[in-house]
Computed example of a mutant assay.
Amino acid sequence: MPYCSAIFSTQTQSPSVDANVLDFQPIQPVRTFEAVEQRIREQIASGRLRPGDKLPSERELAEQLRVGRNTVREALRSLENAGVLSLTRGVKGGAFIREGSNLRITQAVTDLVALGSVSLDDLTELRIHLLDAVVRLACERATPQQIAELDAVVQSTKDANDAASEGKRLDAALEFYRVLAAATQNRAFAMMVASIGETVVRLLGTISYPPEKLFQARCRFMVHFQARDADAACKELNALLVALRDHAKRVSRKPRRQAV
């Protein structure tokens, strides 16, 4: 066989693939109402539908999509449950695109913790790395007004501790992370911090962590944050998060009394 032909012959003879090595997953059939959901989501993703926009009526959607009205109704209810739509009754009612919200993310994280899929260690590690990025960005971007607002929240932490009110302590803890995340000027960070923070704060909210130690740690953080010293601020906040986690582990089998 000529040299060139031999090379060509070698290159074109592919070895057969053992079918047992492949791992093809069966194709799942898509239910009609799910296809309707996808069409609506595509319109939102493309920007043709925006928060506050009203969808066509069920009849109009059914005609456009060539499906039954029951299918459209099921799709709309599913999107309402997902937090995408708001369904209202009455003459001026209908299906409206909702504003973005972190409530669904919060619920999903809470469910994962409740089901044991995510541990306190997992959440703490995620929270440390997330807040590390948040603090660094906030140190760079925070306005003087936001720094003053965060300092006021820290002072309210002491007031809540003095009032011995669990509800006030929880609110102050959530507000601290909300204002800190808002200072990044990044809505995605703000939503993620709110979702994870609310789950962790509620989870640790009845753990008896010494209020004075919490207040002092927050005060030390504010000294560094006001100086825009990101490294020192991150170190202080990380130490507090780890201390809260370790404290929760130590007293997890004891009666729970105070909020974090």
Rank of each mutant, 00 (worst) to 15 (best):
L55Y: 07
P56E: 15
E58N: 08
R59V: 07
E60Y: 14
L61W: 11
E63K: 02
V67C: 12
G68E: 04
R69M: 13
R69C: 02
T71S: 06
L76G: 05
S78I: 06
L79N: 00
L79F: 09
A82I: 00
G83Q: 02
V91Y: 08
K92T: 06
G93Y: 01
I97S: 01
R98I: 06
R98F: 00
G100Y: 09
L103V: 05
L103H: 01
T106V: 14
T106Y: 14
A108S: 06
T110H: 11
D111C: 06
A114H: 04
L115Q: 05
G116V: 14
S119V: 15
L120H: 05
D121A: 14
D121L: 11
D122P: 08
R127F: 15
L130G: 05
L130Y: 03
L130R: 01
L131T: 01
L137E: 00
C139Y: 02
A142Q: 03
T143N: 13
Q145K: 08
Q146C: 11
Q146M: 15
I147L: 15
A148V: 07
E149F: 00
D151T: 06
Q155L: 15
N161C: 09
A164W: 04
E166L: 13
E166C: 06
E166T: 10
G167V: 13
A173W: 01
F176A: 09
Y177L: 11
R178K: 04
R178A: 14
L180P: 01
Q185Y: 08
Q185P: 00
N186D: 15
R187S: 11
A188C: 12
